[in-house]
Design a protein around this nucleic acid. Sequence first.
DNA 1: CGCTTTTGACCGGCGC
DNA 2: GCGCCGGTCAAAAGCG
Length: 295
Amino acid sequence: MAMDSTNGECSSPTASAVGLLPLFGSSRPPPQAESLEEKLRRVSEENRRLAPALDAILSADRSNHPRALATSPPAQQQGNAALTTQAATGVVVTAEPRHKVRTVRARAEPADADANHLKDGYHWRKYGQKVTRDNPYPRAYFRCAYAPSCPVKKKVQRSADDNLMLVATYEGEHNHEQHAQSEYSYINDASTTSQQQQPQAGGSSSSTLPCSIISINSLGRTITLGLADQRRPGSSSNAEAAAVVVGEIVTPELRKVLVDELASLLKNDPEFIESLATAVADRVMERIPAAGHIL
DNA sequence: CGCTTTTGACCGGCGC
DNA sequence: GCGCCGGTCAAAAGCG
């Protein structure tokens, strides 16, 4: 099963087919130009879009079995995506539950251009570095700082194609909680992706982007909350550019962060509010069938 | 002073 | 068996 979406292109066939959820479409007539019928059709369409999102969240929430969303063979060994998500900010998580190997691709922060380290909420100790044959950039080897009690290792290497893209491979599972002051979020430049290079909007940094948070809990198989660049031309609303992928959420704290993030996003989206109000009004009207007779 | 990072050496798997 | 290559070790250096 593969999930894919790039740079807020939430309506990509791949994304909608597999569960990267295009919360809102991008080509929509202005609300004032809509008839009631069109509104009804639009609301119904959005309901259809949201249903898989809800299903994905609920299934991830209720399932303790890690293979809920990952049923494919190992990505690294067979070239298939075992469980790959790529959010709008260019972070890809490939989970391979059977062998406890996960690959994370994340765009390095410009200020950290020389760093070869991914902050993921755990404390790592570097134990080696090696230049590999197929990549001019050195590969760094990290062990969990709680080793040997924690067997997790990770390898971090810059992509040969894009030196701002960090590729981290995790092996094993942590047997402890994240560090208290851990940073389990990537604040990434939302205008870039791993697959498609988008021009950086004036070189602005990600810190100016609200809600551009990607959370990856390496205890979980996949957690991605990606919000596309709101400055992108044609992106008329926050939610329109949003893509949410939730695999297995492990910690309640992280779950709360993700839910809060999504709730905050939707609250600030006037189109979502309007759609919600319309849907509620429709339901009310359905329950008052004789209202016309009263008048 | 203790912890972390660096870096060259070493080891083991794999293909020829 | 040999060489290549990825992964690991461990001493030295760096840092707070």
